[in-house]
Nucleic acid binder design. Sequence first.
DNA 1: AAGAGGCGTCAACACTTGTTGACAACTACT
DNA 2: AGTAGTTGTCAACAAGTGTTGACGCCTCTT
Lengths: 183, 183
Amino acid sequence: MTKTPSTKEKLLQAARALFWTRGYSNVSVRDITGAAGVDAALVSRYFGGKQGLFEATLADIPAWDVLACDRENLLEKAVESFTQPYNPQTDLVNPFTLLLANVLDPVMGDKIRAFVQQGIATPLAEKLGGVRAEEKAAMLLAVLFGFALIRKNFQVKGLTDTSLDDLRAQMMILGQTAVQSAP
Amino acid sequence: MTKTPSTKEKLLQAARALFWTRGYSNVSVRDITGAAGVDAALVSRYFGGKQGLFEATLADIPAWDVLACDRENLLEKAVESFTQPYNPQTDLVNPFTLLLANVLDPVMGDKIRAFVQQGIATPLAEKLGGVRAEEKAAMLLAVLFGFALIRKNFQVKGLTDTSLDDLRAQMMILGQTAVQSAP
DNA sequence: AAGAGGCGTCAACACTTGTTGACAACTACT
DNA sequence: AGTAGTTGTCAACAAGTGTTGACGCCTCTT
């Protein structure tokens, strides 16, 4: 049986779920502690404040496992990780929405941008290699993030109701196009 | 000479500039009135409150002029409108960032989604026509919005420092791929 | 038994938020 | 001149924000 999580873990879990969907400024400390079922004062006690709690959730983001696989099936893995079924429960491990939800925040924006550049874009460019690696990596990220944005956040009709297999096939074509350098 | 704008116009202008960059919840009424140089009480007087002011800026969005041109040069116009130089002053007429900045807002999200679907995605699908028009339109939007997201918001290196001509060429290829239906 | 340290609860704080109503200044009309 | 309507100013409000310090409870050690 799973042992009951500690208060610190309960706070982290609730914070991640809320920051993930609504962004730093749209979530209050009392929202988090209310969802976690603990007192509001414990956020300052355990994490030094709301900002510290947010940074703890940020540090908690798993390394994007796509970066760990070979160059050949990198594209396939990337597409797969961005076309998972729409399930808030399991999607928590996907850092995408947390990044999107907070990049505009006046205090957290810089942190988010630095994370995307150093933790995602630069390693991806190194993995891709070749000429104009940075540009190709950025284009691929644009395709992936744009897809997730239109599907999950804007919920535009053509992407929310199509089968995952069809979507993945389309995304593979787009991804391959993105990583091919113009002559 | 340009006649001095009325208080209402000054408020709308400042509100658009701030909501555009930081999102609804990250902007306070006093931020706006401070930038406009007017009293904070006038927001409630003229627009019925902060929410009314936001909706006024939303109603102020010009119809996406790309939707007005022919089917042939639609793609070129769309790419062009999304690859303008990074200029906050002129970019105010581009609805993109206002939409992105507020789609996650707990109170404004629904309004934004409805606007994107009815004001952009559906007309674009009708313009594209053919089989799977909705899907193709959504994919094209994903490419366009994803590009703007990675470039302007995340400021990833490969897209911020490349020449506009190169970027446009790349985007044209991606856009054409997006609107081609899989067999 | 007595003390210490970790853990949670409660009330309160200083501050910002959006909004309101009273009041003054000005213009336009009779 | 007098009056009505508009427009801007000021102070204040209630609600919500993040944070702090005092207090009580439980467990372990001596």
